[in-house]
Simulated assay, not measured.
Amino acid sequence: MGLLVMQGCSGGQSDDRDSTGHQVEIIAHRGDSHAAPENTMASVASAWKKEADAVEVDVFLSADKRVMAIHDKTTERTGDKALPVRETGSEKLRTVDVGSFKGEEFAGEEIPFLEDIIASVPDHKRLFIEVKDSERAIPPVRELIQQSGKQDQMVIISFSLEVVKASKQQMPEVPAYWLRSAPRDQDTGEYQSIDTALLEQVKEHDLDGLDVHYRGVTPELVEASHKAGLKLFVWTVNESDDISALAEQGVDGITTDRITRAQNALGRQP
Rank of each mutant, 00 (worst) to 15 (best):
E115L: 00
R142C: 11
A119Y: 05
S134H: 01
R136V: 09
D133G: 03
E143H: 07
Q147L: 07
D133M: 00
P139Y: 12
L127F: 13
I145C: 14
K125F: 15
I129D: 06
R126C: 09
I117F: 05
D123L: 12
P122A: 04
G149E: 12
Q153E: 14
S148E: 08
D123K: 08
I145L: 11
F128L: 13
Q153I: 02
A137Y: 00
P140W: 03
D152H: 06
K125S: 14
I157L: 07
F128R: 08
E143Y: 08
D152F: 04
E135S: 11
Q153H: 13
P139A: 08
D116L: 11
V121K: 01
V155S: 02
S120R: 02
S134L: 01
E143D: 15
P140D: 03
V121M: 07
I118V: 13
V141W: 01
E115K: 10
P140C: 09
V141E: 11
R126A: 11
I156C: 05
V141I: 15
D116E: 15
A137Q: 04
P140I: 01
Q151C: 08
P139V: 06
Q151H: 04
K125H: 15
S120P: 06
L127H: 13
Q146D: 11
I118M: 03
A119G: 02
K150E: 14
D116Q: 12
Q146V: 09
H124I: 04
I117K: 00
F128Y: 14
Q146G: 09
K132E: 10
V121S: 10
S134Q: 00
L144N: 08
D123M: 07
A119S: 09
I129L: 05
E115V: 02
S120Y: 11
E143N: 13
H124W: 12
I138Q: 02
V141K: 00
P140Q: 02
P122S: 05
I118T: 03
I117V: 14
K132T: 08
K132C: 02
L127Y: 12
L144Y: 10
E135P: 10
A137K: 00
S134P: 07
E115M: 01
V121L: 09
D133F: 00
